[in-house]
Simulated assay, not measured.
Amino acid sequence: MGLTAEKRSADWLAQGGLRPTRQRLALAGLLVGDGEDRHVTAEGLFAAASDAGEKVSLATVYNTLRAFCEAGLMSEVVVDGSKSYFDTRMDDHPHFFWEDSATLTDAPKDELKITGLPMAPDGTEIAKVDVVIRLRRK
Protein backbone atom coordinates (compact mmCIF):
# COMPACT_ATOMS: atom_id res chain seq x y z
CA MET A 1 0.00 0.00 0.00
CA GLY A 2 1.43 3.37 -1.03
CA LEU A 3 1.80 6.48 1.03
CA THR A 4 -0.94 9.06 0.97
CA ALA A 5 -0.06 12.55 -0.24
CA GLU A 6 -0.59 13.90 3.29
CA LYS A 7 1.68 11.29 4.89
CA ARG A 8 4.34 11.73 2.20
CA SER A 9 4.28 15.51 2.73
CA ALA A 10 4.47 15.25 6.52
CA ASP A 11 7.32 12.71 6.31
CA TRP A 12 9.20 14.96 3.86
CA LEU A 13 8.94 17.95 6.20
CA ALA A 14 10.05 15.77 9.13
CA GLN A 15 13.16 14.72 7.16
CA GLY A 16 14.15 18.38 7.07
CA GLY A 17 13.23 18.95 10.71
CA LEU A 18 10.50 21.41 9.72
CA ARG A 19 7.32 21.96 11.68
CA PRO A 20 4.31 20.83 9.57
CA THR A 21 2.35 24.09 9.39
CA ARG A 22 -0.78 24.21 7.24
CA GLN A 23 0.97 26.23 4.53
CA ARG A 24 4.09 24.05 4.51
CA LEU A 25 1.96 20.92 4.28
CA ALA A 26 -0.07 22.41 1.42
CA LEU A 27 3.02 23.41 -0.56
CA ALA A 28 4.82 20.14 0.25
CA GLY A 29 1.76 18.27 -1.03
CA LEU A 30 2.04 20.06 -4.36
CA LEU A 31 5.77 19.35 -4.51
CA VAL A 32 6.07 15.75 -3.32
CA GLY A 33 2.54 14.53 -2.61
CA ASP A 34 2.50 12.22 -5.62
CA GLY A 35 6.05 10.94 -5.03
CA GLU A 36 7.37 12.45 -8.27
CA ASP A 37 10.33 14.84 -8.48
CA ARG A 38 9.63 18.28 -9.89
CA HIS A 39 11.24 21.55 -10.85
CA VAL A 40 9.20 24.60 -9.94
CA THR A 41 9.51 28.34 -9.86
CA ALA A 42 8.02 30.25 -6.95
CA GLU A 43 5.50 31.79 -9.35
CA GLY A 44 4.54 28.38 -10.73
CA LEU A 45 4.06 26.92 -7.25
CA PHE A 46 2.05 29.99 -6.22
CA ALA A 47 -0.24 29.49 -9.25
CA ALA A 48 -0.63 25.76 -8.46
CA ALA A 49 -1.47 26.59 -4.84
CA SER A 50 -4.03 29.18 -5.93
CA ASP A 51 -5.58 26.69 -8.38
CA ALA A 52 -5.83 24.19 -5.51
CA GLY A 53 -7.69 26.75 -3.42
CA GLU A 54 -4.83 27.37 -0.98
CA LYS A 55 -4.68 30.83 0.57
CA VAL A 56 -0.97 31.62 0.43
CA SER A 57 0.93 34.72 -0.68
CA LEU A 58 3.75 34.74 -3.21
CA ALA A 59 6.09 35.99 -0.46
CA THR A 60 5.14 32.97 1.68
CA VAL A 61 5.84 30.66 -1.25
CA TYR A 62 9.31 32.21 -1.69
CA ASN A 63 10.04 32.00 2.05
CA THR A 64 8.82 28.41 2.23
CA LEU A 65 10.89 27.32 -0.76
CA ARG A 66 13.97 28.93 0.84
CA ALA A 67 13.19 27.09 4.12
CA PHE A 68 12.86 23.80 2.21
CA CYS A 69 16.28 24.44 0.60
CA GLU A 70 17.91 25.37 3.91
CA ALA A 71 16.49 22.17 5.43
CA GLY A 72 18.12 20.11 2.66
CA LEU A 73 14.82 19.03 1.11
CA MET A 74 15.27 20.85 -2.22
CA SER A 75 17.97 22.58 -4.17
CA GLU A 76 17.88 25.84 -6.07
CA VAL A 77 19.03 25.92 -9.68
CA VAL A 78 19.69 29.41 -10.99
CA VAL A 79 19.45 29.99 -14.75
CA ASP A 80 20.93 33.18 -16.23
CA GLY A 81 21.71 34.49 -12.77
CA SER A 82 18.14 35.71 -12.36
CA LYS A 83 15.61 32.88 -12.73
CA SER A 84 15.44 30.36 -9.89
CA TYR A 85 14.03 26.86 -10.18
CA PHE A 86 13.58 24.63 -7.16
CA ASP A 87 14.28 20.91 -7.55
CA THR A 88 12.97 18.17 -5.25
CA ARG A 89 15.50 15.65 -6.60
CA MET A 90 18.53 15.92 -4.33
CA ASP A 91 21.19 13.73 -5.93
CA ASP A 92 23.80 15.40 -8.16
CA HIS A 93 22.44 15.50 -11.70
CA PRO A 94 22.49 17.78 -14.76
CA HIS A 95 19.55 19.72 -16.15
CA PHE A 96 18.17 20.71 -19.52
CA PHE A 97 16.83 24.25 -19.72
CA TRP A 98 14.29 24.52 -22.54
CA GLU A 99 14.58 28.09 -23.84
CA ASP A 100 11.27 28.12 -25.72
CA SER A 101 9.18 27.17 -22.68
CA ALA A 102 11.53 28.37 -19.90
CA THR A 103 11.25 24.97 -18.20
CA LEU A 104 13.85 22.86 -16.46
CA THR A 105 14.01 19.07 -16.70
CA ASP A 106 16.47 16.44 -15.58
CA ALA A 107 19.15 15.43 -18.08
CA PRO A 108 20.57 11.89 -18.16
CA LYS A 109 23.11 11.70 -15.34
CA ASP A 110 24.95 8.67 -16.72
CA GLU A 111 25.71 10.45 -20.00
CA LEU A 112 27.55 13.37 -18.35
CA LYS A 113 31.32 13.04 -17.96
CA ILE A 114 33.26 15.80 -16.23
CA THR A 115 36.94 15.01 -16.66
CA GLY A 116 38.41 17.93 -14.78
CA LEU A 117 37.70 21.12 -12.90
CA PRO A 118 39.91 24.15 -12.32
CA MET A 119 41.71 24.38 -9.00
CA ALA A 120 39.77 26.28 -6.36
CA PRO A 121 41.48 29.49 -5.21
CA ASP A 122 43.51 29.29 -2.01
CA GLY A 123 41.37 29.14 1.08
CA THR A 124 38.31 27.79 -0.77
CA GLU A 125 36.87 24.47 -1.84
CA ILE A 126 34.42 23.52 -4.56
CA ALA A 127 31.03 23.08 -2.89
CA LYS A 128 28.99 22.02 -5.89
CA VAL A 129 29.01 21.97 -9.68
CA ASP A 130 25.76 22.82 -11.43
CA VAL A 131 25.37 21.73 -15.03
CA VAL A 132 22.57 23.38 -17.01
CA ILE A 133 22.42 22.50 -20.69
CA ARG A 134 20.41 25.07 -22.64
CA LEU A 135 18.25 23.71 -25.47
CA ARG A 136 16.62 25.48 -28.37
CA ARG A 137 14.57 23.86 -31.08
CA LYS A 138 15.99 23.84 -34.60
Score class of each variant (00 low, 15 high):
Leu3Gln: 13
Thr4Gly: 15
Ala5Cys: 09
Lys7Met: 11
Arg8Ile: 02
Arg8Met: 14
Ser9Asn: 01
Ser9Arg: 00
Ala10Thr: 12
Trp12Ala: 01
Leu13Ile: 04
Gln15Lys: 11
Gly17Leu: 11
Leu18Cys: 15
Pro20Arg: 09
Arg22Cys: 03
Arg22Leu: 11
Gln23Ser: 10
Arg24Cys: 07
Arg24Trp: 02
Leu27Ser: 05
Leu30Arg: 00
Gly33His: 00
Gly33Val: 00
Gly35Pro: 04
His39Ile: 01
Glu43Asp: 14
Gly44Pro: 07
Leu45Val: 02
Leu45Cys: 09
Leu45Lys: 01
Ala48Met: 15
Gly53Ala: 02
Gly53Met: 04
Glu54Arg: 01
Val56His: 00
Ala59His: 11
Thr64Phe: 06
Arg66Phe: 10
Arg66Leu: 09
Ala67Ile: 10
Val78Cys: 12
Val78Ser: 12
Val78Ala: 08
Asp80Trp: 13
Gly81Glu: 08
Lys83Val: 14
Ser84Arg: 10
Tyr85Ala: 05
Phe86Gly: 04
Thr88Phe: 12
Met90His: 03
Asp92Gly: 13
Pro94Trp: 02
Phe96Asp: 05
Phe96His: 08
Phe96Arg: 02
Phe97Leu: 04
Ala102Glu: 14
Thr105Val: 10
Thr105Ser: 14
Asp106Ile: 00
Ala107Phe: 11
Pro108Thr: 04
Pro108Lys: 00
Gly116Pro: 12
Gly116Trp: 06
Gly116Leu: 02
Pro118Gln: 05
Met119Arg: 13
Thr124Arg: 11
Ile126Phe: 03
Ala127Thr: 11
Ala127Lys: 10
Ala127Ser: 08
Val129Gly: 13
Val129Pro: 13
Asp130Asn: 10
Ile133His: 04
Leu135Pro: 03
Lys138Ile: 03
